[in-house]
Amino acid sequence: MEIALHAVATVLLLCVLAGLWRAARGPSTRDRVTAFALLGTTGAALLVVLATLTQTAALRDAALVLVALATVVVVVVTRGTAER
């Protein structure tokens, strides 16, 4: 089981790295933010997996925080540029 969780964590980490490509490449700011929204979800998945792996309950809180504040970042970025 531990090996499976390690493998899942590694795969998710590679996904985060792949998301870096889109965040760095763009081309528009919205694309970058889309990448960040994806990374918020993937990072949360990574943190909950690590929470089970290391038996640290607080990492689930961290996942919750990451998901919630990733949304805040997106709301901040898109304000003023979106039509109603």
């Binding site: 889309t34 979800t41 949360a44 309950a57 689930r60 949304t71 997106v74 898109t78 979106a82 039509e83």
Partner: peptide, 29 residues
Amino acid sequence: GIVAKLVLVWLFALLGTAANSHLLAAPAR
């Protein structure tokens, strides 16, 4: 508690993604 928090993480993600996608996909100036 663990199950409750895991479900909460997922619900937050669903809520956030729904709002994010709408905001990001809205026609931009």
